[in-house]
Amino acid sequence: MKIKVNGKEIDVTGQNTLIEELRNIGYDIPSLCYDSGASHQASCMVCMVKNVANGQMIPSCSTFPQEGMNIETDTEEVLSLRRMSLELLLSDHRADCEAPCTVVCPARIDVAQVILHYDRGDKDKAYSLLASATDIDNLPCKDCKAPCEKACRRGTVDKCVSVRDMMMVLAEAKDLRVVEAKSVANVSKDVFSSKLGRYSDAEKEWLKEVYSQPSRCLHCACEGRDKCKLRQFSTNAGIKAPRYGVSSHQIVKEQIHVKGSLYFEPAKCIRCGLCVYNTNDGFTFKHRGFDMQVVIPEESKNNVDEKIADICPTGALFTV
């Protein structure tokens, strides 16, 4: 069978979906809800292409080639619709890619990661990460005005984390070994970074209750940002911030322990359903419309394999 793609004729078998055929011949079609080999249903609409033959916009991930198709993949119309679908997803995605403390640190210390290691009891790693970023004997935090503490999201809830004190205590600790520790932050103007925005009063109360570790850190940075396709495609599309009102009905920063090291954070979920279609009696949908959410019933938690985190296109499913 022959179809036209951007004016050029190509041969296809008709057995593969359009997105596979297009990727095979070198077009980079983004998609969130599609993972080759996994069962899926069209949802995110980021893989949109136009069939000029009938003027329809179609999700290439679930359309099979048909005789006479004339596909456009990179016109302004197609690109702007893809951008809009990403923006719409981001407007319902109340999460930080990077922690505000890390973003503002003048010494470029991955503050959030240091605190995370510290909170998990891995003081060696915290110390080493700090040491790898700065001169540990001459810590710049001493004379710093601590913009990290001003930016700290905990500060909007009750009182900010005393980042500076923590760093100084760490630097002065004599009993810690140097191990391998790498910064995972990706702070750059060229990379898209989702921002959580303000907490409502009810959310503040809930956060106070749930995040009560000694450091009081909310751990804003996303655990899944490295593999996050939403972030990657948003960067590619040149999105700075969604142009639409931001709101979500998901509970902010709720982290549900699924099994072993697997966690689920609904506020980051884009409802693509990959985890629903690829677990047997595991994740499932609840409610409909804007309220629709992916849930994991208590009795189904054991039916989930930890590997499911790999196919989640965002950081909603992550392992620690």
Binding site: S43, C44, M84, S85, L89, S91, R271, F290, M292
Partner: peptide, 8 residues
């Protein structure tokens, strides 16, 4: 709630 354009 299935597709982005309609849901959001």
């Amino acid at each position: 709630g299935k597709c982005t354009f309609c849901r959001v």
